[in-house]
């Protein structure tokens, strides 16, 4: 495995302004090219952790992306490297047309119109939404919106892709399309989800967060292969069986 560290978090503690302790002494490293699932119950601090990865929330020096510390000075470069796909595509698609949305990132990066236009065409082709340039998001299905939201991030050519609950609100068919799509991306991937089968299929490594702490960090085999680990963190043990079946076959 390539040993370059894509994400390095050391002693990250974060308290919300209202005093709520969201993250406690989080330490972890994610290597370039890895696919990692972060799982945990509601309120475990998953989303807060994500917001630290591109500097929406900042704790000086605690987070490094490809060796660059996340701080006010590096913010632009960091956000170019870290592409964040949010849970609700309606939050991510805020422009009148899909084209405007996909071009938003590249234009902010300072790309000229011609290059940006080529980038949009290429990215929309890559995710199977060619010809959607002039469509507006409120006339699209949930699956199309989700893919368009991914396109808005891909157009910035990030090195790390972060997905927050990528399959929420999707029907099984669309879920399959999306999983295959995510699988096809060669970038470093971080997937936050309740949906463990996704972790099984897309990731080599699982991190379990509980009450703002990293309580487990290991390979899929280490985590899902051990029934007692799943029971300890109140994760549906049927995933353990699914996992065993998968390995048998």
């Amino acid at each position: 495995m390539n040993k370059e560290k894509a994400v390095e978090i050391s002693n990250l503690t974060y308290r919300y302004p209202d005093g709520n302790l969201a993250l406690q002494d989080v330490n972890l490293s994610i290597f370039a090219g890895e696919s990692v699932a972060i799982i945990g119950h509601n309120g475990a601090g998953k989303s807060t952790l994500l917001l630290h990865l591109n500097g929406i929330l900042k704790e000086n020096g605690a987070v490094k992306i490809f060796g660059k510390s996340v701080n006010g000075k590096n913010l632009k470069g960091i956000r170019r490297m870290v592409g964040m796909v949010f849970q609700d595509p309606d939050d991510q698609l805020f422009c009148p047309t899909v084209y405007d949305d996909v071009v938003f990132g590249p234009i902010n990066m300072g790309m000229n119109d011609k290059e940006a236009k080529e980038r949009v065409t290429e990215v929309l082709g890559r995710i199977g939404l060619s010809g959607f340039e002039k469509r507006s998001a409120h006339h699209m299905s949930a699956g199309e919106k989700k893919r368009a939201a991914i396109a808005t991030v891909l157009s910035m050519e990030p090195k790390i892709l972060i997905f927050d609950e990528p399959t929420s609100n999707l029907d099984p068919k669309m879920r399959r399309v999306l999983i295959d799509l995510i699988k096809s991306f060669p970038e470093t991937k971080i997937i936050v989800s309740h949906d463990l089968p996704i972790a099984l299929e897309l990731c080599q490594r699982i991190i379990i967060l509980e009450k703002g702490r990293v309580v487990e960090d290991g390979s899929v085999k280490d985590i899902l292969g051990k029934r007692e680990v799943l029971e300890r963190y109140e994760i549906d043990p049927s995933y353990h069986c699914q996992f065993c079946d998968m390995f048998k076959s």
């Binding site: 939050d91 938003f104 902010n108 300072g110 940006a116």
Partner: peptide, 17 residues
């Protein structure tokens, strides 16, 4: 949330393009 999504895509308060 929309504002956070804008920031994540490099928005710096300046409407370009």
């Amino acid at each position: 949330r929309v504002y956070v999504a804008m920031l994540s895509r490099g928005f710096d308060g300046d409407l370009k393009g």
